[in-house]
């Protein structure tokens, strides 16, 4: 399998994730779609790493995983805080930042 195939699959997953971020309104699902985009990036990084035959791309992928975990922790914390304050869990209605 040439690396091209993996990159095309990665592009498809990234596109699906971007679509989801733009059309979904539940912030939980928006976070899930962000995960899709990050994972598409990971797939491309691993593919390039395989192409060059060194491990740098894998280190990049691991760092991306760390950042995704941080993003999930903070994002879910914000969603739980929203829910506790009885704010609507809907990104369309969360247009004001005043506390």
């Amino acid at each position: 399998m040439s690396v091209n195939w993996y990159l095309i699959v990665s592009a498809m997953i990234f596109t699906l994730g971007a679509t989801g971020v733009m059309i979904r309104r539940n912030p939980l699902v928006v976070l899930l779609c962000l995960e899709l985009m990050l994972n598409a990036g990971n797939l491309a990084l691993i593919g390039f790493s395989r192409m060059w035959g060194n491990g740098a791309g894998e280190i990049f992928a691991i760092v991306v995983m760390v950042i995704a975990a941080c993003e999930v922790a903070i994002g879910l914390g914000i969603i739980v805080a929203l829910y506790r304050r009885r704010l609507p869990v809907d990104v369309d209605e969360l247009s004001e930042l005043h506390g």
């Binding site: 399998m1 733009m22 192409m51």
Partner: peptide
Amino acid sequence: AIGFASAIFIELAIAVLGTGLSALGTEGI
């Protein structure tokens, strides 16, 4: 959103298929 996402995909596909990196067509070294 779907229009914008299609644009992203087309751009990425052009980037992958039209690249000068000839090694992309192989399995890697």
